[in-house]
């Protein structure tokens, strides 16, 4: 008994079961239905894009990380890959997707010091780069040509070559709204039977994913709720003022990347505030920026920039919303 090997360490000796890789892989799990839905609507090409994005992200992470780090297995690179793919239009050239992954992880994450150190959401940073570098390709919404197994020709474009768009192009509901003032009906928005980026079209799945992630306490409910409430209330005000020129609140909430942004991008633990009141300030800020950009900006969609801007404000929000310590007066 007394010659047993006992270990010395300090308390506490008990540990909650949740681990960081566990949290990350649960997020990946919650994204699977979204990925499957994207391939249902846009064909197998969606899966190919997702695979390329994941490979690009994980390879970049592996290349830049010190070999002793376990950052490959923690699942965070896989999340970035899936999320990046889900924000890309169908038919987006794969070589561009690959570059997007390199930028997302390289400039969005490892350059800051890896997991937990970055200021901006890596997937959105990668997409912002793609939007700046390939503005035409990222706003070309190719419709699938019907057969599930057909990969769109534009996806297979050679690197640095113009994609030969030989398929029917369509407009997203937001673009139709912005330029033609025609609103897509709510049912189509919910079921995803619309044009748009791979993962953003099926509203029902994203709402279910949100409920799941909130119930397992991975994302904080305050963020999606404050974003959606802000967008809903603000757009309701303008809709009531002038229904001919402004979209309805349900259209604003269900169209474009708002849901995927509110559920997956804005809730990124690393780049969102940590204080209770900070969560609301952050969410409301995103909501206001989305409405401003969509209604009066030059772009049809503003979720990406809204979240990136509020990411930048997060350290400041954390500092100014610090919680009062027990026993102190504020």
């Amino acid at each position: 008994m007394s010659d047993q090997k006992l270990t010395i360490s300090t308390s506490p000796f008990l540990k909650d079961a949740a681990t960081t890789p566990g949290i990350m892989w649960k997020v990946v799990f919650s994204l699977l239905p979204v990925v499957i839905a994207s391939s249902y609507y846009f064909g197998v090409g969606a899966l190919v894009t997702t695979a390329v994005a994941i490979i690009s992200c994980v390879l970049t992470e592996w290349f830049f990380s010190p070999r002793s780090a376990y950052s490959i297995s923690d699942g965070s690179g896989v999340i970035t890959g899936i999320l990046l793919a889900m924000t890309l239009p169908p038919g987006f050239p794969l070589w561009m997707t690959f570059i997007g992954g390199i930028v997302a992880i390289g400039m969005g994450k490892t350059i800051w010091g890896g997991l937990g150190q970055n200021i901006f959401n890596p997937a959105l940073l990668g997409r912002a780069f793609l939007q700046a570098a390939f503005p035409t390709a990222i706003t070309t919404w190719n419709l699938p040509d019907g057969a599930f197994l057909d990969v769109q020709a534009s996806q297979l474009a050679m690197p640095f070559m113009q994609s030969q768009a030989d398929v029917v192009s369509s407009a997203t509901p937001l673009a139709v709204m912005k330029f033609d003032k025609v609103e897509t009906n709510t049912w189509d928005l919910l079921t995803g039977n619309i044009g748009g980026s791979l993962g953003e079209t099926c509203g029902i799945l994203l709402i279910l994913a949100m409920v799941y992630l909130i119930s397992v306490k991975i994302i904080k409910w305050q963020i999606p709720v404050s974003i959606l409430l802000t967008v809903g209330i603000l757009s309701l005000v303008f809709y009531l003022l002038d229904a001919n020129n402004y979209p309805s609140p349900q259209f604003m909430i269900l169209s474009g990347g708002l849901l995927i942004g509110a559920v997956y991008m804005a809730t990124d633990l690393v780049t969102s505030p940590i204080t209770p009141s900070g969560l609301w300030i952050y969410g409301i800020g995103i909501g206001i920026l989305v409405v401003l950009i969509r209604l009066w900006g030059g772009l049809p969609e503003g979720v990406m920039y809204a979240i990136l801007l509020m990411n930048a404000a997060t350290p400041l929000i954390n500092r100014y919303t610090a919680v009062r310590t027990y026993g102190y007066k504020k």
């Binding site: 008990l14 540990k15 960081t20 010091g113 937990g116 633990l269 919680v323």
Partner: peptide, 23 residues
């Protein structure tokens, strides 16, 4: 009960803020 765990970077999940009894 007393597991040896790998230490990861802080992911700012905020669980410790919700746990700390003195805020």
């Amino acid at each position: 009960q007393v597991k040896e765990l790998n230490e990861y970077s802080c992911i700012r999940c905020g669980r410790c803020l919700d746990a700390c009894p003195i805020y």
